[in-house]
Design a protein around this nucleic acid. Structure first.
Lengths: 352, 352
DNA sequence: ATTATTTTGATGCACGTGTCTCAAAATATG
DNA sequence: CATATTTTGAGACACGTGCATCAAAATAAT
């Protein structure tokens, strides 16, 4: 029987190396290298022998040593909107916070802020990137033809691209973010459960209903409310377009015309505008209000009772997951499904 | 001005190495090594010079290369209860599932199942461990004097110990798990919010109220119910002691004597017994039932509407966090607070 | 059977750090 | 001053893998 791997002092099985592979497969280390790195000019019979040895020994490549040998560093870029949105601020904070941890893993991250409403600027930025300066890009931007094409060409040039959080068509698990339909449905369920016996109307407030996120959340919300809580009626979405004045206006107007509002659902990732509008209008205490994303603003609103629940995704997890995925993409590996699944979290006053 | 780090082809700053440190500090690589690894016999003035260079260059040790040189492998052991509990099954599953990912990081994990009720067995196991065979242990076991002492001696022998999920006194951030008081409070909040206008009694079911977890959850639950939902009254805890017969008995008895039960809170991490008892007794449809831990059983109960909400902690995150912490402890590093914070998650039918 | 081509082996260096050894230099002690 | 001691430097090798070169062996083509 073959001695399958060297034995260490304490009797534990040492981890098999390429040397062990070569010995067990009966080939040279050079050939093992050719097989492991998929180089040309190796007979199929030899390839099989090596693979059999890998199987037999349970060989796992020492990525650290490999990266050291290649002196590989991962250079990743986050492209984020430059709006002052607090949620994006949290994302930025986590990118910086994790910088030290990333450095230890040979990952360097940088951030570029772009105007969300200028697809040409985004496309131009993407066009300026090449595999010589960056290995992967996490992109948070609305899906427009320009951007979609730019992403496509970027990938063809050999730079990995990863839709980040929102607004892009998803392919397989090559994206990071939550299922917005389910997030909306969760909001709907909470709304219904918090209002078990009170028939009435639900106001729904969004920045703009044109974004993919908003549409999906709205659809999930409606689905649950219509099918499970027929005593509640979701009103058409109100759009604030990011304007505080407009937010104040539409909320007071709506409340004036619809006296039987029992709940408010704030769709957008920035709840500050709608919340202060609600504060100004002084809605009755017993209206249930649900918003998205954990920010200093929504935390405060939870604590003082203005907000009843917040549906959120963990920004730190989003950032780390993006980095892990980009790294896996550059290595041609796959990631752990369960680790990368971004949870839809529910936050109440008591689990802040 | 000093040339601070070598320049790579593409113009990007190469990451500084110990060589760069030596050059900038004006000492030899041997001395840099003495400082970095805290060896004796270096003059304070020299130590300061090196630290200044570290600061100036922003030097971060290449852990991968260091571990390679030391041929370091991390050998961790999980000590878990051998009860057939589904939640523990999930933990086990995640340990195995993440095995491949760990291997790539030079981490090998093993698992030992022990009888939770036999502190002497656990203490004996701990006593048998030495730094020669294991670097760190994640321990999930009730806190008894025997176990506490054994853990203490284990640490003195140089094996890192990490309380895992439950039942040990906590020191600083050297533990993994959720805040059970907050988890109980969350359950209480949901219960109250789901029952806004229905006065009545709440049945509370536990395996045993003697465990630290149960006590803390109960206390959090009571606090919220008493202070915020005075129309609800939490009954004394019912203990099942893991017996299905007893579960059936106490639940039917309680329901017979207390006709105005409007909610049930299942404290323990195993909800199967109480749930099937509830199923047998056929409680009225509109009773709100909340349990802990996401398992196949609680998932099914959510889908079919028996359960209204599940409070849970992500077992995969728990496992990975334990490994990261043990690794940081062995390296003498600190971990990222925000990443290791285990979230109290709320699961409804819609965010399964 | 000879030559051309493909496949394999042997060997050496590199990556960044840890860990030795031995000598040289600096400083302290008498 | 000479000597003992502390502090530092120079150098070599190791870890596991990638990558390159050149020769040797195996196989295919003529």
């Amino acid at each position: 029987m073959n001695k399958s791997a060297s034995q260490s002092d304490d009797g534990a099985l040492a981890r098999p190396t390429t040397k062990d592979l070569a010995r067990v497969a009966g080939v040279s280390r050079a050939t093992v290298d050719r097989v492991l790195n998929g180089r040309e000019g190796v007979k199929k019979r030899t390839v099989d022998k090596v693979h059999a040895a890998i199987e037999q020994l349970g060989f796992v490549r020492n990525i650290a040593a490999a990266n050291l040998a290649k002196s590989r560093t991962y250079r990743f870029l986050f492209i984020l909107p430059q709006s002052g949105d607090q949620f994006h601020g949290e994302i930025l904070r986590h990118i910086n916070e994790a910088q030290t941890a990333f450095t230890a893993d040979m990952v360097t991250t940088s951030v570029r802020l772009v105007d969300q409403n200028d697809p040409f600027e985004i496309a131009a930025l993407l066009a300026s990137l090449s595999p010589e300066t960056v290995d992967g890009v996490a992109i948070m931007a609305p899906e427009t033809p320009q951007v979609r094409d730019a992403i496509h060409r970027l990938q063809e040039r050999g730079v990995h691209a990863l839709p980040f959080i929102s607004n892009q068509t998803l392919n397989g698990d090559k994206w990071v973010g939550i299922d917005n339909h389910a997030a909306g449905a969760t909001a709907g369920t909470l709304m219904g459960r918090f209002l078990p016996n009170r028939a009435g109307k639900l106001a729904i407030i969004a920045d703009s209903i044109l974004s993919r996120d908003s549409l999906e959340r709205r659809s999930g919300f409606d689905h649950v409310v219509n099918s499970e809580f027929p005593h509640l009626t979701a009103l058409p979405s109100l759009e604030t377009y990011g304007s505080q004045v407009r937010a104040n206006h539409i909320i007071s107007e709506t409340y004036r015309h619809q006296k039987d509002i029992v709940g408010v659902y704030i769709l957008s990732s920035e709840a500050r505008g709608p919340l202060s509008a609600i504060w100004n209008v002084a809605l009755p205490q017993n209206i249930v209000i649900i918003a998205h994303e954990r920010t200093p603003c929504t935390e405060n609103a939870l604590v003082d009772g203005t907000l009843d629940a917040v549906i959120t995704q963990d920004p730190g997890h989003l950032v780390r997951s993006a980095v892990r995925k980009l790294r896996a993409m550059t290595d041609g590996r796959s990631t752990l499904r369960s680790q990368e699944k971004i949870r839809i979290e529910i936050i109440l006053k008591t689990n802040l």
